[in-house]
Design a binder for these strands. Sequence first.
DNA 1: ACCTGAACACCGTTCAAGT
DNA 2: ACCTGAACACCGTTCAAGT
Lengths: 229, 229
Amino acid sequence: MVGRGRSVETRAPLSRDRVLRAAVKLADEGGIASVTMRRLAEELDAEAMSLYHHVANKDQVLDGVVDAVAAEINEAVSRLTLPAEGPAWKEAARRRILTARQVLLGHPWAPAVFSTRTTTSPEVLLYFDGLLGIMRAGGFSNDLAHHAMHALGSRAIGFSQELFSPTGGPTTGEPDPAMAAMAAQLPNLVGMLAEVAHDDPDSTLGWCDDQAEFEFGLDLLLDGLDRRR
Amino acid sequence: MVGRGRSVETRAPLSRDRVLRAAVKLADEGGIASVTMRRLAEELDAEAMSLYHHVANKDQVLDGVVDAVAAEINEAVSRLTLPAEGPAWKEAARRRILTARQVLLGHPWAPAVFSTRTTTSPEVLLYFDGLLGIMRAGGFSNDLAHHAMHALGSRAIGFSQELFSPTGGPTTGEPDPAMAAMAAQLPNLVGMLAEVAHDDPDSTLGWCDDQAEFEFGLDLLLDGLDRRR
DNA sequence: ACCTGAACACCGTTCAAGT
DNA sequence: ACCTGAACACCGTTCAAGT
């Protein structure tokens, strides 16, 4: 609407950055499947083929989108200022990771995209470098810090993909028929579910775990690493 | 070629089972992207549209493929006969999980597909039920066992998606130019890589971790769970 | 240089028709 | 009942052409 003084002629200058921002916006609104080159172009009032002057192909769009989300995470964690020397490393790492998770809650489609990327984004590397710095300050050897990064896996950046969600939704009165048919063959699962309320009231990160379970697993790992420090 | 006595007329009887087996075969040969309804049909000497008489849609094909791989895992772990009472639970769980991983090594595309599935496969539920049984035998409360399943996440079934693979290949003499440009901003990462050989000689499970790192993370979790038992 | 229209080689899926 | 051909509504991307 404003145009910052400059008026009209050519509507929009189009750029790699504008393309990536539009992609994040589309994904936030309708999931990652709604990010197609054609709809991306439409969002930018251009033709699909024009995008190829700013990104090599769709894969590069997804790489860029991951980098953009990771940049948002880095921006958020940069505001944290906790001591990390000695035993303080654990709380510093914990806060960093939970802050990353908080950012991802705003982009529920992002973890799935992160997982598909084969080339590591520069911003993700920056994030890991910072976490590594906390561990080094805490007294980790490079070798143990290396193991730690692998052990944390995606948890290091705030998400954990779950394939164990036996109920799939709030345990309403109506029983899942398929589940009921198998019940006899799943004695331990049925017994457990009868005892623990497996609600996941609003499983916030899509197919991911909810906050309490994420923190349980995170603390399990951080405690174990602290012991080996 | 043989046809088991019955000769000719109609070539292939086509069935849900045959469709799923063909899908696994295609994925093993060319990755999951090569599993399309059209190529699947071709593999079965049929037309793409014929498949829809045996599966509702492509999503159901992928569900079935996951179920088939999980069935293969269950078959493999069923041959294990380890005691699980008391402290023995840990070795039993460990062996079960590493056996699952061994099966997945034969289907490197499978972890990514597992992660995208929203409905849990019956065979995956059976697998989890067995693991839960081991934990119960080991003395876990239902509540702790529940947390444990979430904490293990996909590791419970033998894989862990890594987004941390800073080098991306064997550290040959030639330096990654993009990496080199960022090196100054990644002091901890560069320092660590200089010290630990981050080879991943043949990172077996695609974008996943290698065996040693998988076991380190697994033991970290199992040890932590054992302590809270 | 930046952008575009038409076209190509694919997708999953619907539908009406065959046996 | 099981299978199929043609067609529809999408994809990502190439190419030759426009300014």
